[in-house]
Nucleic acid binder design. Structure first.
Lengths: 247, 247
DNA sequence: CATCACGTGCCACATTGTGGAACGCCATGC
DNA sequence: GCATGGCGTTCCACAATGTGGCACGTGATG
């Protein structure tokens, strides 16, 4: 299904670069103009794209894509349930709060975010994907998956992103055990240098991890002495979200 | 581009019915199993779909689709700017607040929602699409579009959804003028019976409508005597969002 | 006024996707 | 324990489908 794959790539590129012209896209992909053009027109007819209001030769993603939502966010969703608890946690700590959902492609996707008002703050855009093995949110999810799945997800080489990344499977398993015992995961420079995050999972009735909430802050504001307190707050927030979601 | 169109339809159907099986989709579309199957596998490889964790013959939308976000919600977005004002309005009124964005296909899409805590409340899922001509959110947007565009968008027959729907173009234009003068739009049973909504637009620097905020409530809780007050609150909220978004 | 860059439309061709048929698996029931 | 039926998956010959080179229209530039 070559053309479908290509069309989806084009759609993603439009999302990234919007508003974007046919010419720019041909440069990105090295495809003939007519091919790109035809794809854009079709995507437009299907309602996924639309021409920019001011410059009608520029294309952007239409709001209709919002109708296509991930399963975890469907209905009386997790997403809605998470908002108030996230706001509350942000107000308590004045640090950025993220909600992430595990994705098939060995990563967690940022689904929602509540910002703090510090000038120096961490930034992850909604839709960003981070590796499972090198983030607090990833660990929080992994810790509650059956061993078989963890093994599968961490089968390949664990990519290192710096000194602190856990690249040894055995070490990762030990860390996950610690996360399970403690109730929350901690990431100190494992993925992005200078970023510290504390995350707790939101679990389904039967214990499958649906999502995780995390507070993340620059290294400079992280006080290891307050870890237990932060951990408790994040865990409580996750519990609150779970209660609202299931209740 | 027949096959692309069809594949996108399948993707949308998966989103609507998730988690869904190949067989169910063949019934919905009347397509051969193999065609549906191949499409699902390709969408899966592209990261848009994934097999359900529990029942691997059921397909659902993967979180990765979130990377494809509409232009209006990009970056330091409207979406983020709208959250706190929406919460505040909800806390003031204890009624459900919606944020909607106009879409190319003659509708407004619900982008965000903050719920009230009444047992009886209005419900519109995130991603839902409603007609421009029969909703307060739609009117709020239409009222600030150039005449040519309004004409274009309302060119076809205006579908009626009940007694109150404005189906006459001239009458709609008059109503839009009123909306512009007053600053907010009111919908009383025009679209969904028993639902009343008051909406105000969020405008760009140059006056193009980007979105609209609305408070919506069941008929039973709507007091016409408080309309002016509600209108002012909604308008203020929209102004607040605009200020945060542009600032 | 010539040139260029860019978006758009056309159409013969072969690459691409199609869908009927067959396979394998599991649950059901005789 | 074996036949049955339903369902997801795989295969492959065929032709319908999408491809992309080419040419046109237009608006900007020098």
């Amino acid at each position: 299904m070559k053309s479908l794959t290509r069309s989806l790539r084009i759609l993603e590129a439009v999302a990234q670069h919007q508003p974007v012209t046919v010419g720019e896209l041909t440069k990105i992909f090295g495809l003939p103009k007519s091919t790109v053009q035809r794809t854009l027109v079709t995507l437009n007819e299907a309602g996924w794209l639309r021409a920019n209001r001011r410059d009608t030769t520029r294309w952007e993603v239409g709001a209709r894509v919002l109708a296509v939502r991930p399963a975890a966010l469907q209905g009386s969703s997790l997403f809605a349930a998470a908002r108030e608890p996230m706001f509350r946690l942000r107000d308590t700590l004045n640090e950025t709060i993220h909600l992430t959902v595990p994705d098939a492609l060995h990563g967690v996707v940022v689904v929602d975010r509540v910002d703090c008002d510090h000038t120096v703050r961490t930034f992850h855009a909604i839709g960003d994907i981070s590796p499972l093995h090198a983030t607090a949110t990833g660990h929080a999810v992994l810790a509650h998956l059956p061993k078989s799945e963890v093994d599968e997800l961490t089968a390949g080489a664990l990519e290192g992103f710096g000194q602190e990344t856990i690249t040894d499977p055995a070490e990762l398993r030990a860390e996950l055990r610690r996360v399970r015992d403690r109730g929350y995961a901690v990431n100190h420079n494992q993925y992005r240098p200078g970023v510290c995050a504390i995350a707790a999972p939101v679990l389904d009735e039967d214990g499958t991890p649906l999502a995780s909430v995390a507070v993340s802050m620059p290294d400079s504001r992280f006080d290891p002495g307050r870890l237990a307190e932060l951990g408790r707050l994040v865990t409580d927030t996750a519990a609150d979200i779970t209660a609202r979601h299931l209740g």
